[in-house]
Design a protein around this nucleic acid. Structure first.
Lengths: 341, 341
DNA sequence: GTTAGCACTCATTGGTTCTGAGTGCCAATA
DNA sequence: TATTGGCACTCAGAACCAATGAGTGCTAAC
């Protein structure tokens, strides 16, 4: 266990390092904070911290820098997150109230969060999981084309245009639609595929030709729905913080543009007591993200978490305010979804 | 007018500079290309080019680098663009054939183009302009909510959930929908707003309550449709080419994330005879994009251009193959839209 | 447990010199 | 007139060196 003062020293080091980008030494520490002890004593404490691998010295004789483990201890000790300013709250309200459909809401959220934190924001689309089918719609666009729609209770709406052989009647389309809705409406997405196939069996000869074209496409929609998707915003914030990354930022950008990697990462992250979850540096288990941290929180619809929202930035980030912003935005997003969906 | 050999020298300088990132000098020029004359002669030619501001020397005594004007002359002289390899063609076919709806198609296109060129790809959404309303649909989701849909003939589909007072009958909704479609279907989007308002006037008392809720939201959809939108992909390619930019790349990233700037820029660009349009460096008239070039081409639906697709990268880019890729992708995109829409 | 003192380390800074690719110009040449 | 070899000159960048100073670890005294 780490004694009290050394812990305070660690916190001070993290804070100073975040603020200054410079390795912090014993002398500047005693100057800026009033520990009531001398630099030499601080040095002893720092020796303890180094022993515990909470800090390291980049070169033999320079100040210390927190390790991933150090950051971890710091955030775990973080008793309270920095609350948003009134202006920031107002910005959130203003931004999110304007949104209409889900796409727009999530888009706004991502932009907002990236501006709030000056980091790269990520917003995960609600997907499969607990979602269920709210409605299936088939609209005739013209003689040869139908528009299929799949609406889920998470608010996600997907559509697809399908070409069909001519000569069907409008009532046939309606019949098929009703058949589909009767058997699928309200059912979880995970069961939808099987149920849709079931409809194919039941289809009368009359609408068989139609359903043969429509159902496979519908299955694709269901499948696409289960495909997770992440929205990014503020990528340029990474570039601005370029010097926080050893070498080039381009592998980092590549990694976060690679949806699969990110999705895997955030899906593994389980929220802690405060409703937030974060990975620091090597905790990501992704080489390219070795010097980045990820902060995410879940947002909900109808009482259960449907997806995640968060930020990604250099390990040397202001955890306190980023956590605050992510939490606030997640909360507002939940509220906003609950209201209009 | 520039004599023949100097022009060849310019081309060689551009090509060598693009390949090597290094200012190119007279000696290395005669080594790599067989001009049949000595370095001193080349130096005389270079003096001419410098006189014409087609090339500059970064410092008094170093090789030369093309100016924006030099690049411009180079591309204008470009008689033929580098055709895609068979593998690349196959990649395009494979990529685009998988797409189903418009969103997906454009998303794939952007990714594809960025991979093909190793630049940042941009794809503009089809918008207002010549588009017209194909269909308006209103779907009842549950007692208190309707889903409005606006489908345009450019393939764009937008939806919005609207809450309504309860107690309406399903036939009322149908009545409203029919009323709307009768007056708006097939009409250009630019007239849609006025027509929709007209429906509001005609609405009978019975459906007045409904239309009062629905029509304003529908107008918003029409309006949103006129909002131009650009899809980006491969932002990390910029970072990889970081050293091509003086100072930091972050202002560049910011500029291209700022949709408004980009939209204005590409809307001003008119295709030349080959169907491609490009801006080099300061031609962009955007400070942040001073050392970037933009290559765009239009893609069509039903015979007329509906939006643009292209790449953006450092002025020091391989114009020949980028132009080739953009052209090819635009062509395939046109084909793909024509086929399934 | 804390502190002052001290010798030591080493990244950074600034100055100096060296090197070499590349230039511009000129007189000779074809 | 166009081309060429020759030559003096320039200047960015590399290499080297010394000085600086923030910061350390250690020890002995408080």
């Amino acid at each position: 266990m780490i004694p009290d003062r050394p812990l305070e020293v660690l916190k001070a080091i993290v804070r100073d390092y975040i603020a200054s980008k410079e390795p912090v030494g014993s002398k500047s520490l005693v100057e800026r904070h009033s520990f009531g002890v001398s630099a030499a004593t601080i040095r002893n404490d720092m020796a303890i911290l180094e022993e515990e691998e909470l800090i390291v010295a980049p070169h033999t004789s320079s100040g210390r820098v927190p390790t991933d483990k150090g950051y971890r201890m710091f955030v775990d000790q973080l008793s309270e997150v920095k609350p948003l300013s009134a202006a920031e709250r107002a910005a959130i309200e203003g931004f999110l109230s304007k949104s209409s459909d889900l796409d727009e809401t999530l888009g706004h959220t991502a932009r907002l969060l990236s501006q709030l934190t000056n980091q790269v924001a990520l917003v995960q689309y609600p997907s499969l999981g607990r979602a269920s089918v709210r409605h299936i719609e088939i609209i005739s666009i013209d003689e040869l084309r139908l528009l299929l729609m799949l609406i889920t209770d998470s608010g996600r709406i997907q559509q697809h245009v399908v070409e069909i052989p001519g000569g069907y009647e409008i009532t046939d389309v309606e019949k098929l639609r009703n058949l589909l809705n009767e058997s699928v409406e309200g059912k979880p997405l995970s069961e939808a595929a099987a149920l849709i196939k079931g409809v194919g069996q039941k289809a009368t000869a009359k609408i068989k030709q139609l359903s043969d074209r429509v159902l496979p496409e519908l299955l694709l929609l269901v499948d696409a729905n289960s495909q997770e998707k992440i929205l990014l915003a503020g990528t340029s914030n990474l570039a601005r913080r370029g010097d926080d990354f050893p070498g080039s930022i381009s592998p980092v950008l590549e990694a976060i543009e690679e949806q699969v990697v990110l999705l895997k990462l955030i899906s593994e992250m389980q929220a802690d007591a405060h409703g937030v979850s974060l990975r620091i540096g090597r905790e990501n288990n992704v080489d390219a993200l070795l010097s980045t941290s990820v902060v995410v929180s879940g947002y909900e619809n109808q009482g259960s978490e449907i997806a995640k929202v968060g930020v990604i930035g250099p390990t040397r980030m202001d955890y306190s305010s980023n956590i605050g912003a992510v939490l606030a935005v997640a909360r507002y997003l939940t509220k906003s979804l609950g209201g209009s969906q």
